[in-house]
Design a protein around this nucleic acid. Sequence first.
DNA 1: GCCAACGTTGGC
DNA 2: GCCAACGTTGGC
Length: 154
Amino acid sequence: MAKKYWLFKSEPSSFSIADLEKATNRTTCWDGVRNYQARNFLSKQIAVGDQVFFYHSNADPAAIVGIAQITKAGYPDPSAFNSKSPYFDEKSDPINPTWYCVDIKHVKTFSKPVSLTELKSNLKLKNMVLLQKGSRLSIQPVSESEWKEIIKIS
DNA sequence: GCCAACGTTGGC
DNA sequence: GCCAACGTTGGC
């Protein structure tokens, strides 16, 4: 299976790429995703070795700030069953879990982040999911050509 | 802080 | 099944 590319959004005030870099094994469980479309990517399509752009939303500036890779494919999100977690979902059944997560590992932090403004100004990237009007999806596919173009500018 | 766009909920 | 109301996301 060909390697695939993704973009994961995170608000740096809750979890930034610096936090990922500092995490044990530079790895974290990407939990708490509570959107069905994003869930489907996590549970069905994202595979070990896939590459991920780490994006800071609600940030100044909003930007792609680095790269991570998938170290563990989709598995049931433990936070959904933890009543103390802010992501607890009492309706999720452990036998047939509603929510999934993956593990990601830090690969690199860009010395020069690629800002949303730069992405928007690049015509080769106009079809990126991130740039579509009203796009709020927190886990998005990125095409190979988009990936390469962004690596080139970074 | 504002607000447009989106997803979900729940009454009917 | 429709759709209004609500809560959330996220750029500005």
